[in-house]
Design a protein around this nucleic acid. Structure first.
Lengths: 195, 195
DNA sequence: GTCTATATAACGATAGAC
DNA sequence: GTCTATCGTTATATAGAC
């Protein structure tokens, strides 16, 4: 895991995947969530699939390509949420975004915090143009264009709260629907009474 | 990084450290924050200190011992904050806790999210009795003894928000004092108007 | 306390057979 | 698409000299 080539620019592309590639992505996703990217070896992915490392390398040339493929799945879901939010007017846009992002985070609770906090993924994102563009759009809706310290801190805390709470030990026993409803409620509190 | 022995029980002990050990802890702390525990090798720690791996192994027998030593530093700070909070009565306890925890998170912003989200550390914490006891005390103050779904979700989101916001790209440019003040303000909003 | 040197295992990655 | 076998590198960890 150490290269420096610039990745693709522009909108996220819907890369078509074979069935074998999808199996790799599914296994890797689960392991990244449990052990992080650095803590997950190609051998672990192969073992989880019941094949050898060589079979995994036949689907993806490098480990980094697997990481990118795993990210693309969730990044495209996030992009869809943003598309839907941006189609709304005024404060409705933010409301729609938060609802959809919380849905997404709860659905994908096993992987979300890894995606948001893993050092390898953070480094990858920093040179991944479509992701950076996505984050710009995300925070434009969240902050409504403002960029004062107060607004930035609020947006950062909400982003971290949504991504981090879904894997928190305190909520492990809660079902998806309860977690979703309660998170939406707490999140709204942060916007109802602005700085 | 793979053992399963139970760690010490009870209150956190103030382990005395030699100067050389402290140098290891400082270097490791910085690297864990940047690359995570799995992404940090003994060689990287040795290089950062300007010594060889053997010198590092003379201070700590295993990598896991280094991880534990790094954790102890911040866990004891957290314990102090908790001691101070528990000395207060009623709602003042929570107010004091949040203020001190936010101070701590901002001061230690380079390492906090690693400490809270790194998979190796999470696994280590799960069998570390003094840490589990500390978390119980922390959430007792945060939730004021309640344990409804609403209260749990709120506490989880606040915990994640504080730990995760301090390293968020949106607040990278903010100085510690601004970040601290704004975070405290947003956090208070979450408690002023309970479920 | 730090060094050189080494043991042993696992890592990412590839070649070539089936 | 998967296998066996292997390459070169790096990982954790140790022995013994200074």
């Amino acid at each position: 895991m150490s290269s420096a080539a610039p990745l693709e620019v522009g909108r996220l592309g819907a890369v078509p995947r074979t069935a074998a590639q999808t199996r790799v992505i599914t296994a890797a996703l689960d392991l990244f969530g449990q052990h992080g990217v650095s803590g997950t070896s190609l051998q672990m992915i192969a073992d989880a699939m019941g094949v050898t490392k060589a079979a995994v390398y036949h689907q993806f040339k490098t480990k980094e390509e697997i990481v990118i493929a795993v990210l693309e799945v969730d990044l495209m879901r996030l992009e869809s949420a943003l598309d839907a939010a941006e189609a709304e007017q005024g404060p409705r846009a933010r409301e729609v975004l938060l609802t959809l992002v919380i849905d997404l985070a709860v659905q994908r609770r096993r992987i979300v915090s890894a995606l948001q906090q893993d050092p390898v993924i953070i480094r990858l994102f920093a040179r991944h143009k479509p992701f950076l563009a996505l984050m710009d759009r995300l925070f434009a809706v969240l902050t409504d264009g403002e960029s004062s310290a107060g607004v930035r801190v609020r947006a950062a805390m909400i982003s971290a709260a949504i991504g981090g709470a879904v894997t928190h030990p305190l909520v492990m026993g809660l079902d998806d629907e309860t977690l979703r409803t309660q998170m939406l409620h707490v999140t709204r509190q942060l916007f109802e009474r602005p700085a």
